[in-house]
């Protein structure tokens, strides 16, 4: 009996979420992104190195490291 209600709330939440995220995108993301885009090439779209392999730098070799999500 609650299913239609939950489904409605979920859909409603998703719509609101999408609107909010659109606002966030143009208000909060935009200024950072415009600067970021100008200085960084994190996706290597501009540079073309002779090899796209780079050293593996992640450190995750102890239980302590492994408890982290980053």
């Amino acid at each position: 009996m609650f299913e239609p209600v939950t489904a409605f709330l979920e859909r409603f939440g998703n719509v609101v979420g999408r609107i909010l995220l659109t606002v966030v995108y143009f208000i909060a993301v935009a200024p950072v992104a415009i600067v970021y885009r100008a200085v960084a090439d994190s996706l290597m779209t501009k540079r073309r190195p002779s090899s796209t392999y780079r050293p593996w730098e992640q450190i995750n070799d102890t239980l302590e490291d492994a408890r982290r999500q980053d």
């Binding site: 998703n14 979420g17 999408r18 995220l21 659109t22 966030v24 995108y25 143009f26 993301v29 935009a30 950072v32 992104a33 415009i34 970021y36 885009r37 960084a40 090439d41 994190s42 996706l43 779209t45």
Partner: peptide, 19 residues
């Protein structure tokens, strides 16, 4: 980072993935 780097084309993917 990908959303930043591909702004403003990344609106939809940003919205959907953030959701």
């Amino acid at each position: 980072v990908t959303a930043f780097q591909t702004f403003p084309k990344s609106l939809r993917v940003f919205r959907e993935s953030m959701l």
